[in-house]
């Protein structure tokens, strides 16, 4: 194999003994050449699948960012929290611990999250980020620590009855409840989220199908070559690999375009809404740059995987070796 790159796809064993896969050396330049010429040969179909992948994944990336933004702007409401138990800033650790025990014991409490002063201050800063003077004036030590509680029931009367049990415990400052409006918004957002997820999955499924179709067409267009390759003893993977790579390249190119679109969305959104005053609802919807990276990484991975699945199935169905 002098002078050529070789991937060893399978462990080398002694061919004479016939005891396992022989080493399959596949030249990278060959795969690159075949993949390239296939992509060009079928330019219309290739463009259609690349474009579909791009649209599907841009939708996924953008809705992920908006989702993160909305979740952040609605704070605790997003996680079905319907009740807040605020402690006095002066409450002792013993008092906090006994309230926690009482909450944990209560059968009407599904789950609790405790926010200490540091976390409370972080959230406080975020909620009032456009009033820095106000933030400055607050000492973190003055902020009340709190429990966020998800009750087992969603009925507001049951919830306030539950809350009453904790109002008089030592160290408790006040019990508050999520408003009915907030929980309604939350429920609508959950429904919307479900629909967006389904739509995103449907778009990805369509992308996989288009890649599948492109690869099936490519297999058909090259059936003479495939027949000859089989005849002269090309290994199964040697025949399949260029098609699989072709599918993955289509998925990846689509994903790269989608990443670009998601990134532009990030830039435009932040420029037009987040750093502007006056748009109270929209400028609260924002996300960290780490979320953008998660979106891009996800989009690229899903693109490559969708391409591999689409072409893998096409090759498995139409390329009998």
């Amino acid at each position: 194999m002098a002078g050529s790159f070789a991937i060893r796809l399978a462990a080398s064993t002694n061919e004479q003994k016939g005891s396992g896969p022989d080493l399959v050396a596949i030249r990278l330049d060959y795969v690159a050449k075949e993949t390239g010429s296939n992509l060009v040969r079928n330019i219309t179909l290739t463009l259609a699948s690349v474009l579909t992948v791009a649209i599907a994944l841009a939708f996924v990336g953008v809705s992920y960012l908006i989702g993160v933004g909305i979740e952040g702007s609605f704070g605790g409401l997003q996680s079905d929290v319907r009740m807040f138990v605020y402690m006095n800033p002066t409450a002792t650790q013993d008092q906090i611990d006994s309230v926690r025990k009482a909450l944990e014991k209560s059968p009407q409490v599904d789950s609790i999250v405790f926010l200490d002063q540091a976390e409370t201050y972080k959230e406080f800063k975020r909620l009032f980020k456009d009033q820095p003077d106000f933030v400055e004036s607050i000492d973190p030590k003055e902020l009340p620590q709190s429990f966020r509680i998800k009750p087992t029931s969603t009925d507001s009367e049951v919830v306030s009855a539950v809350g009453k049990q904790f109002e008089d415990l030592p160290g408790v400052y006040r019990v508050e409840y999520a408003s009915k409006l907030a929980s309604d918004i939350k429920r609508s957002l959950d429904t919307l989220n479900g629909w967006i997820t389904k739509f995103g999955l449907a778009l990805i499924a369509v992308s996989v199908m288009l890649i599948f179709n492109t690869i099936r067409t490519a297999v058909f267009a090259r059936r003479r070559e495939i027949e000859v390759m089989r005849l002269v003893g090309a290994s199964n993977w040697f025949i399949r690999l260029p098609f699989i790579v072709e599918g993955m390249v289509q998925g990846l190119i689509g994903a790269i375009v989608a990443s670009g679109l998601t990134w532009s969305f990030d830039v435009l959104w932040k420029r037009n809404f987040v750093n502007q005053r006056g748009l109270d609802l929209l400028n609260n919807i924002t996300w960290e740059s780490s979320n953008l990276w998660i979106a891009v990484f996800t989009v690229l991975t899903v693109g490559a995987v969708a391409g591999a699945i689409g072409s893998g199935v096409a090759v498995g169905r139409y390329l009998r070796v």
Partner: peptide, 22 residues
């Protein structure tokens, strides 16, 4: 069963390329 878009040389070479010969 020759490949119409390949020359004589390429048709024969194809049998070796397909089994990964350098």
């Amino acid at each position: 069963k020759l490949l119409p878009n390949k020359t004589v040389y390429e048709n024969v070479a194809f049998a070796l390329e397909a089994i990964g010969r350098p």
